[in-house]
Amino acid sequence: MLPLLLGLTAFVVFGPLINLAMWAFTEQWFFPNRFPSQWGFAFWERVFRPRAGAWEALYHSVTVALAAVALSLALAIPAAYALARLALPLRSLIMLVFLLPQAFPNLPIFVNIAAMFYGLGLNGTLFGVVLVHSLPGLVYAVWIATAAFSAVDRSLEEAARNLGAGPLRTFLGVTLPQALPGLIAASIFVFLDSIDEFTGTYFVGTPDITTLPILMFNASMGGNYQIAAITALILLVPSVGFMLIIERFLKADVLARIGR
């Protein structure tokens, strides 16, 4: 029974990935053939042609993701420090507020944001897309950063203060380095969420801003499954790589404090 369950789990996890990889290197695959009749790299060359738009989409995806990380952390670090260290009234309610963007379906939220952004002239701009991507990113940034600051050993801070360090020097020299692994993990979560974001980009950015998820969607709707599969593989690489980094930086003591 156990081998059967393991085999079924492996099929569910790796089956779609294997099919995706097959489409990425397929040049001809017609029904009712179970496997491609011709393999090659012709569609990879088509994807990365200067006029194909893949390089521009990749540039937009990375630029928006990095900007979303910077904006999310700029807001999350002071908020997380206050939530972790200060006796704030209604602290649990404040933490819950940061979860609200994930508590409702994305579609109606982004439709209403797009309507507001249209009146502000932010539709079709990189800044508008960054703002949309930072909204769900704040959830990861605030919750993980709060746990990271809560896990900092306060005795080291007290020792630094006793030796004459001021509040700012203690924060920069003692608190921040200890919380840094958690902040790096939060940054990676925000980056991955942003680079895979489709709905917000679709309603706020298109047609002026095209990211890799938008390119993949357009290729799928046009029946260009090879191009869609290649784009999906490109998006998969940072996801797998960064998840391995998160496993290293997000330690058990930080995870244990998430939500507290």
Rank of each mutant, 00 (worst) to 15 (best):
G7W: 09
L8D: 02
T9C: 14
A10L: 14
A10V: 04
F11C: 14
F11R: 04
V13F: 14
A21M: 11
A24Q: 05
F25A: 10
E27L: 03
W29E: 09
F31S: 12
F35Q: 06
P36N: 06
P36M: 08
W44F: 12
A52K: 05
E56S: 13
E56C: 00
L58T: 12
S61K: 06
A67Y: 00
A74Q: 02
I77F: 03
I77Y: 02
A79I: 05
A82P: 02
R85C: 11
R85P: 03
A87F: 06
L88E: 08
L93M: 12
L93G: 13
V97S: 12
L100A: 09
I109Y: 01
F110W: 06
F110A: 04
A114E: 08
A115C: 00
M116N: 11
Y118N: 13
G121V: 07
L122F: 10
G128N: 10
V129A: 03
L131Y: 07
V132Q: 02
H133R: 11
V139Q: 08
V142A: 12
A148H: 03
A148E: 00
F149Y: 14
V152Y: 04
D153E: 15
D153L: 10
S155D: 14
E158H: 13
A159W: 02
G166T: 02
G166N: 07
P167I: 07
L168D: 10
T170Y: 10
L172Y: 09
G173M: 05
G173L: 04
G182W: 00
I184H: 01
A185S: 15
F189K: 03
F189T: 01
F189H: 01
F191I: 05
D193W: 11
G200N: 02
Y202V: 01
Y202M: 12
V204R: 01
G205N: 10
P207H: 14
P207W: 12
D208L: 14
T210Q: 13
L212Y: 02
P213T: 09
I214C: 03
I214N: 02
M221E: 13
G222Y: 06
G223T: 01
G223L: 07
A232K: 04
P238F: 01
S239E: 06
G241E: 01
I245R: 09
I246P: 07
R260F: 09
